[in-house]
Amino acid sequence: MNSWINLDAIWRIVVVGLLTGAGLPALFALGLRLLNPAPLPGRPATDRPTAGPLGRTLAGLIFAVVLAAIGWGVSVIVNHR
């Protein structure tokens, strides 16, 4: 490690940043996708099925994970001394 530039910290920031900063919105997007399933083949795009119980449960789980991650983020700030 060099005293002018801390490469160790930088790559950690990149990895944590990608996992939380890009990963969480991607998870959130996946949840939205589960709540809005694609139209059945051969049907018009306007005729969309609604999400079934499985889709809703999975989406709920995903949103819960996202919320938990935010809660973890807040606790990191609070406990940082």
């Binding site: 990149v14 940043g17 990608l18 900063g21 890009a22 990963g23 919105p25 991607a26 959130f28 997007a29 996946l30 939205l32 996708r33 809005n36 694609a38 139209p39 795009a45 969309r48």
Partner: peptide
């Protein structure tokens, strides 16, 4: 870079969503 990666993923995952 993080935002670009997030944006790509988000649009990809919600492609069929109206």
């Amino acid at each position: 870079a993080v935002a670009a990666a997030g944006t790509v993923l988000v649009y990809r995952f919600t492609r069929g969503v109206p």
